[in-house]
Structures are given as C-alpha cells and as structure tokens.
C-alpha cells in the first residue's frame, strides 16, 4: 500500500527539487555581488568558470543572447540602496558619478510585454549629463523632467546595466556602480 505514494513522492521530489535548485543556482551561482555599495550583482559569463553555465542559462532561458564577457559586463539590481525591492509604483533616482565607459545602457525589466508608451532603455549616447559629468536618471511610470526611464510593466522590476569594457577608466574592483535611491512611493 505504501509503495505507490513513495514512488510518486520520489519522482515529484526529484523533478521539482531539481528544477527549483536549478532556478535558485542560476541566481546565486550565476551572479555575484558587485560594487562597494548598493545591491548590484554581476553576471559571470567568463568562459571556463564554474558559474558560467548558470549565468548563460539566465539569458538563454529568457530567449536573450548572452553578451560576450570580453566585450561587455552585465550587472542587475532588484533592490534600492536601502535594500527594499524595486517596485514600478515608486519613483527612483539612479545616480552615477564615475561611469566612464565607451558605451553603456541602463534598462528596466522585465520587458516581456512592452506598453506602447514605455521607454525602458537609456544609453550613454543619449543621456544628458550634468556639468560635472555625473548622470541622474529618474525611473517612474509618470513623466519626469530630465533623463527618464518608464518601466514597461507594473509590479516589481529589475535594473540592468550593460557596460562596454573598452574605454573603461576603472578596474573592476574600483568600479563605482550607480546609486539607486527611492524618491517617492
């Protein structure tokens, strides 16, 4: 009588356990904390590293092409500097002081269903800089003066920063990633 439930339980445990552990490892092993402050995580796509298959799976499972690590570094952040989850209902200010790179892009995900008037990406080529070369970018669902990113969907969100390796003036250990401050909620 006990054999069938044990059999079913074992198979379910194996399938769900294997799948859940894979999803957990994609986040925890595929990315690692980055930057001296904030909650940024860097996706390690360097070939030959043990975290590489997990980082690659992160991109491929979403149908995206993983950037080549020799050309680009990819960072994500799902929390503000106080550690609260990023929500599209709130307004945030992203401030970067020393983001010296030949090219970078800052985007807000997820972008599965883009709303007609959403503009979830801004790049170094179109951003307006302050006199001291610093950059402030507002993230809000409503229009904000200056650099502004409008999230594509309601709910929780993730900031993604893609930085070109070329022209970067800082070593990776000294890289100052942007601050993410909640302005209003």
């Amino acid at each position: 009588m006990m054999r069938v439930p044990t059999k079913i339980f074992s198979i379910l445990f194996g399938v769900i356990g294997g799948w859940a552990s894979a999803l957990y490892f994609i986040d925890s092993v595929g990315s690692q904390p980055a930057g001296a402050t904030g909650n940024w995580r860097k996706w390690d796509l360097a070939s030959g590293t043990s975290s590489n298959p997990y980082a690659r799976a992160h991109f491929l499972l979403e149908g995206r092409v993983p950037p080549a690590q020799s050309l680009f570094q990819v960072y994500t952040n799902s929390r503000d500097d106080e550690g609260n989850q990023l929500l599209t209902e709130c307004t945030y200010m992203i401030s970067a002081n020393e983001l010296e790179s030949r090219w970078w892009s800052l985007s807000i995900g997820p972008m599965d269903t883009l709303e007609r008037d959403s503009s979830p990406v801004i790049t170094s080529e179109e951003v307006v800089r302050n006199a001291d070369n610093s950059v402030n970018i507002a993230v809000a669902r409503h229009p904000v003066a200056g650099n502004w990113i409008r999230p594509a969907m309601a709910g929780s969100m993730v900031i993604q920063l893609v930085i070109s390796n070329e022209g970067a003036s800082q070593s990776e250990s000294g890289l100052k990633l942007p601050a993410v401050q909640r302005v209003a909620c």
Partner: peptide, 18 residues
C-alpha cells in the same frame, strides 16, 4: 532514485533546456 532524478533535471535545466 529521487536524488538521481533531481540531479538529471538540474543539469538538463542548466545545460540543455536553455
């Protein structure tokens, strides 16, 4: 059996399915 199945599903989810 459960542990072996979990390992197979884990590897498939990371290496082959993506």
């Amino acid at each position: 059996t459960a542990v072996t199945l979990a390992v197979i599903v884990h590897i498939s989810t990371i290496l082959f399915a993506p």
